[in-house]
Design a protein around this nucleic acid. Structure first.
Length: 711
DNA sequence: TTAGGGTTAG
């Protein structure tokens, strides 16, 4: 008996067969019978590249072992590259490790292999190891490593690699620079992208394409467009990628038309990618009709075409159209991918219909999870259930998930926050910390949850831990959450000092939070200060004007209130009209203030009178502050009792079973008087009423609201 | 052996 050591065996590329024992004679016979023919040097690489399966590649590798070609660096590099392209990163790395080579070509292939398989951390580690071993990276190494930094959103390491680029003399290489532009763009450091672009001695089409992409990723749409026009003026012909990138920058129909003209002129009139992007572009420009005609004009609709149109409807607040299209897609037997499902889920979230949410969740289960990103879809379902009012279902999905990432945890934490369960959100946040490092959005979720529940100490604790424990630098949205938290809790002076001490300039969100707190606690002086900053920073937002006007009105300063309304009109800012929707017996009904369009109008109004009488007897008094200058967007002529919330609730009372929960959705924040009235209605009718407004959920039961009047 | 592109969860 002897132990086999160097036999070929396709399943084990490192030619050790320690689990097999055989007689020496048997081995010799077997080798003679089954050994693959030796490979020839002139055909070795083409043989490797022809392999379309791991099995055939392993056979070629076995032949190479017989000829000792695995010791040839050129052959080995090709072999590793082929293992990578066939998806076996473990075999590739095993061969790479055994080679102990310091050839940068080989290292580049392995670094690229990790990047191609989304193992960005490993590619970065390999790059570090390469430097430690004194192997010089070259112009091919940097694009791979820089891409990994961009995908990891690790700008700190990206900057270090950029330093290496300079040190090794590749700062003028067009491939390296283009990679840097993308990496900085992805890491939200547009100014660095632009710096690289401006300093490039030579640019190619990709340089223009990538800088425009960096613009769209960082919301610098105007700059993206102007770079595109400049590119055309410099007689650089846009390629498909440039057209697609600039389409993501267009938010005006005129620009969209112009880009389409350029696209057609450059021969992209029959390009499906460009058609799909154009569809999305027109939808973003508010022309859903044009988006639909592009959709209808595409004869061979691919999955992206369908997903883009469904998403366009969802974004345009047309959820029923989105769901209708999804149904049409299913009837054509087109299997949805995860992106389509995410758009469908988003449409359902807009609809806030528990029944639809349940149905869509059912469809997702029926697909058997045969789509590329189940984690994203399950996370979206958690968000969907929380937005449709069911924390119980959201939590069930959360608990049954096999893996969770930071987005999953944040979705659940936000869900608790939206429903006023700050304590649960805080517990879950602490639980999360042991498995996942919180990012900046997770902190927004928890700070906002603390703010909605008045958890001041917990909010401070989380805020202070951000930079100290997790190296997350607070952004303006975190400061806004803290101002909201302090302001709602009545600590207006503390909120003001907090703003004064901010290391970054307060934005509209921060001032808006202070203004909102001033409204709750009737502090007119501070409100004026916040509003002064706000009306400059966020002059197009109608809610800001209405809020300030309301503050003036409720403190008797009707002239000032009127002045603000006039300013708003003069600046051409139009109010968003408020509406409330309710779903009854599989049908969705929409109400606006003073709505008389419904067939049951007479019945609704007489029932409304009756309900209002009953709640008055219970102690309800109308809050007249909301009469002349209603909370946000409804016309001031309307009387309180015909607010859309009350009409929808009464409609629900008339058309649902007495034991069922009434669920309504308001597109803006609930009016203060409606909030009070709904508490009374829940008491006198003994009905549970769930209101989802633009900010959060309110669960009304037995005369109280889950928000504790803290909204 | 290198860079960029249509839909995309908190």
């Amino acid at each position: 008996m002897q132990k086999l050591k160097h036999c070929w065996f396709p399943g084990r590329p490192r030619y050790s067969c320690r689990f097999f024992w055989a007689e020496a004679e048997t081995l010799t016979q077997a080798q003679e019978l089954f050994s693959p023919p030796p490979v020839r040097a002139d055909t070795c690489v083409s043989l490797i590249k022809q392999c379309s399966s791991l099995h055939s590649l392993k056979t070629v590798y076995a032949s190479m072992l017989r000829s000792h070609f695995h010791l040839n660096l050129y052959f080995l590099t090709n072999l590793i590259a082929q293992y990578v392209s066939l998806g076996s990163i473990s075999h590739a790395y095993s061969l790479f490790s055994s080679s102990h080579s310091s050839d940068p070509f080989l290292w580049n292939v392995m670094i690229r292999g990790f990047v191609d398989h989304a193992q960005y951390h490993r590619s970065v580690l390999l790059y570090i190891q390469m430097l430690e071993l004194g192997i010089r990276p070259n112009n091919y190494t940097f694009p791979f490593v820089i891409k990994a930094c961009g995908c990891l959103r690790n700008v700190e390491f990206g900057i270090q690699v950029h330093d290496d680029v300079v040190e090794f003399g590749y700062e003028s290489d067009v491939f390296v620079c283009n990679s840097l532009i993308v990496m900085y763009g992805k890491c939200e450091r547009y100014e660095l992208s632009r710096q690289v672009f401006d300093r490039m001695p030579d640019r190619n089409e990709t340089s223009w394409s990538t800088i425009i992409r960096a613009c769209s990723l960082n919301d610098h749409y105007e700059e993206g467009l102007s770079l595109f026009w400049r590119m055309l003026r410099e007689d650089i012909r846009p390629d498909r990628a440039t057209v697609l990138n600039v389409m993501a920058c267009a938010y005006r129909v005129n620009d969209a038309d112009e880009i389409c003209r350029v696209a057609v002129f450059n021969g992209f009139d029959f390009d499906q990618y460009v058609h799909n992007a154009a569809l999305g572009m027109y939808a973003r420009c508010g022309r859903i009709d044009l988006a639909r005609s592009i959709f209808d004009g595409i004869l061979n609709k691919d999955i992206v075409t369908w997903a883009s149109m469904i998403e366009a409807y969802a974004q345009a607040d047309l959820p029923l159209e989105a769901l209708g299209l999804f149904k049409q897609m299913n009837s054509q037997r087109i299997f949805p991918d995860s992106v389509t499902l995410l758009s469908v889920v988003r449409a359902c979230s807009v609809l806030a219909s528990f029944r639809h949410a349940h149905a869509v969740h059912g469809i997702i289960i029926l697909t058997g999870g045969f789509f590329n990103n189940p984690l994203a879809v399950e996370t979206a379902v958690i968000d969907l259930y929380t937005k449709c009012g069911s924390l119980t279902y959201a939590r069930k999905v959360f608990d049954r998930m096999q893996s969770r990432n930071i987005i999953t945890w944040s979705a659940m934490i936000s869900g608790y926050g939206m429903h006023g369960l700050g304590g649960e959100a805080y517990n879950l946040f602490n639980q999360m910390k042991s498995s996942v490092k919180p990012d900046h959005i997770a902190f927004v979720s928890i700070l906002s949850a603390c703010s909605h529940s008045g958890l001041v100490a917990e909010g401070w604790e989380c805020f202070n831990s951000m930079a100290r424990d997790f190296r997350v630098t607070p952004r303006t949205e975190h400061y806004a959450c803290m101002v909201d938290l302090l302001g709602r809790a009545g600590k207006l002076d503390e909120a003001q000092v907090f703003i004064e001490r901010m290391p970054i300039g307060p934005d509209a969100g921060v001032w808006g939070a202070l203004l909102g707190a001033c409204r709750v606690h009737s502090n007119i002086d501070l409100a004026e200060m916040a509003a002064k900053a706000l009306l400059d920073l966020d002059s197009k937002n109608p809610g800001r004007y209405v809020l300030l006007s309301n503050i003036y009105a409720s403190s008797g300063k009707t002239k000032d209130a009127h002045k603000i309304r006039t300013l708003m009109m003069n600046r051409g800012v139009r109010k968003v009209s408020g509406h409330t929707i309710i779903e009854i017996k599989n049908k969705v009904y929409t109400f606006v203030a003073g709505d008389r369009s419904h067939p049951q109008t007479d019945l609704i109004y007489s029932e409304l009178e009756r309900v209002m009488d009953r709640i008055r007897q219970e102690g309800y008094t109308p809050d007249m502050n909301f009469v002349l200058h209603d909370v946000e967007e409804e016309t001031k002529e309307k009387m309180l009792y015909v607010h859309s919330e009350k009409l929808a609730i009464v409609f629900g009372l008339l058309n649902s079973r007495s034991e069922s929960v009434i669920r309504i959705r308001k597109n803006l924040r609930i009016c203060g008087d409606c909030h009070t009235a709904t508490k009374f209605i829940s008491k006198v009718t003994r009905r549970e009423i769930v209101v989802r407004d633009a900010r959060r959920f309110h669960h009304f039961k037995d005369g109280t609201c889950s928000c504790g009047d803290y909204w």
